[in-house]
Structures are given as structure tokens and as C-alpha cells.
Amino acid sequence: MAIFAIYSIKGGVGKTATTVNTAYLCAAEGEKTLIIDIDPQGSASFYFRIKAKNKFKKKRLLKGGKTIDENIKGTDYANLDLLPSDMSFRNLDLALNEMKHSKRKLKAIFEPFKHEYQHIFIDCPPNITLVSENIFNAADYILVPLIPTTLSLRTYEKLRAFFKKKKFASDKIFAFFSMVEKRKKLHRDILKERLSDSPELLQAYIPYRAEIERMGLSREPVVFTYPTSDATSAYKKLWHEIKSRCLE
């Protein structure tokens, strides 16, 4: 059993696509898998055509237990369930602020799911906030998509520095390149340099592909819609490497 948090300080880096596709691959191997969508944009929920119940509010999430359980929904795929996002999650920080043990609250809430699910994937909101700190506590591994640009690499360094400062185990962080466009020289250079110099980075990377962008229209994981595409084989390689680095 492992909890994977898919996290990025920056938005628009292919975070949700990673969550959806790796979780799908995991479930397809027969493992009971849960996606927890706490990104207020709710893109993961959108991709699976799942809406939260109107009544499901942040206070209820923080109560945990039965309320969450009732809100979990089956996706259209075997072994894959999802706890949908709710717009009110944007205020989760405020609510956490008012509580005791505010940095460990989510970890306690996710605890009961360990019995039902073999693996959990959390699609995290961007930025470093109290919610992210909660997630860094709760997750066993933090998967961080990086666009091969200088700016993106800087945010990655910032994240590592934050982990160091807050004494989170930085070996939980597994970053990988995402939205890679090989036709761009900068991307090629950064990939070449970093993949050989930074052993903590995952070797598998996700290319920029129109199929992935089209997930917003098809509302299905790209690995399901285009099982033979390069995007699919990239996600498969990524998932394979995550398993071998984290689970074996």
C-alpha cells in the first residue's frame, strides 16, 4: 500500500494527466486504486465525468470517516474509484488553520482508506500551503512533474529546500520531466544534462502530445483512449519506473 501525491508548485505542468493515467495503469493491473482529487480546479474529477455531491463541503472532508466514504465514486474503469473535488476545497486551508494538529489532519483522514485500497493517488493543489504540508505528511511518495525549463527547475529546487527546512524526508520526492518537446533545444539540453547529473530524477519522461491535451474533450485517460500511442507508452514507462523505485 502506498500513497502517491502528484504535486507541483506551478500549474499547467501535466500534473492531473499524470494522476489520471498512472492511477488508471495501476488499477488496470488489478490493484484497488483511489484517486483523491483535492485540486480545487477538479480536473481529475472532470476527466472521469464525476461530480461531487452538492452537500459535500470542506468541513465534511475534515470530519473524515463515513462522509468521505459516501462521497467516493466508482469511475468507468475496474478497480478505480475517485473522491471528487469540490469547489469549496479552495477554502480548505482556512479550515485547517482553525484546527488542532493542523499539519497532520489529512494523514489521519486518509488512514481508513488504506484498508480498502492498495494504492492512493492524490491530485494536489498547486502552491505551498497548509494543505500541501498536510499532503507531504500523508503521502509516501511525492511525484513532481517538471517542464524542462529553467523556471520550472527553480521551483523544484525551492520545493527541495522547503522539504529540508521543514524536515520532511526529501527522498520521498520523485520528479520527472513532463510536457517535453524534443524539437526545442532548451528541452533537449536540460533533459540531457539533468537526466545524467541528477540521479534522484526519474528517467522516464512524458512528451508533449496533442492526445494528452485532448483528454479534456474525450474525458478518458489517454492510455485508455489511445492504447498504442507514444503518450501511452511514456506513461507506462513512468509507472513502471515509479513501481520499481518506490514499491520494490
Binding site: 464525476i50 459516501e70 462521497n71 467516493i72 465514486k73 466508482g74 468507468d76 474509484d81
Partner: peptide, 12 residues
């Protein structure tokens, strides 16, 4: 023999 089965999806 003939039968119909209904499999629920969680949350619906």
C-alpha cells in the same frame, strides 16, 4: 437459461 444482472457503480 436466461438472466439479467445489475452491477452497481460506487457512489450512484
Amino acid at each position: 437459461m436466461y438472466a439479467l444482472t445489475i452491477s452497481p457503480v460506487r457512489g450512484y
